[in-house]
Nucleic acid binder design. Sequence first.
DNA 1: CAGCATCCTGCGAGATACTG
DNA 2: CAGTATCTCGCAGGATGCTG
Lengths: 115, 115
Amino acid sequence: MLKRRLNRVLPPPPGCALSLCVRYLRGAWTANILWYLKHQPRRFSELRGDLPGISSKVLAQRLRRLEEDGLVARLRARSSPVSIEYSLTDLGLDIQPALAVLVIVGEKIKRRSLS
Amino acid sequence: MLKRRLNRVLPPPPGCALSLCVRYLRGAWTANILWYLKHQPRRFSELRGDLPGISSKVLAQRLRRLEEDGLVARLRARSSPVSIEYSLTDLGLDIQPALAVLVIVGEKIKRRSLS
DNA sequence: CAGCATCCTGCGAGATACTG
DNA sequence: CAGTATCTCGCAGGATGCTG
């Protein structure tokens, strides 16, 4: 059956740069995954440790989409005990400043909600 | 029936500042709505014009959540022809720099995908 | 004008179990 | 270790129509 990847969800929001970028961060975990890849490549189970509560299914899904979107690269490091490293591509690096600002705003929000 | 608002979606991603902030931008239109409120207060139908393709239902939902989250303020401007103005709160202003960076990254992405 | 009501689709996510 | 399979739930969003 023809799979209808018609982009029905998130379909015709204005094609401006903001929507373009936000689209990459869809999903509750996506931004955090990119954040933990900032400093070094990480393996699947390392990322699962970084993100307490994520299921392997969701992590695999997010990583797969990030790879499709060209933000994350996949490298099979070893094969005897299977080991796969995920790292940021150039595009993934480009998006990091945006995440940094989101973190700063998030901390402001946190402080505000405490007071 | 007891409505189970258990926050099942987006529930226990690490409670870090990044997740906190990303939570406010959930939804395809949210970031754009905030963006169009940046320079001046806007009325409902003005926003609908700003965001070609959005339905009034979705716009009303997003505005309501933004109001709950404390990012947007609602002001009944006139009552004879009902007119309601939406504007950014201080918190809504705080998040603007993050959106600005997302726009810049989005433009980089756009340029990259053209070449 | 500024929405709300209703019905429907598709995706993100959780839980659990299983595999090479 | 790095996933896949199956099931269920809830939300974002579209379409259409209606209201004060």
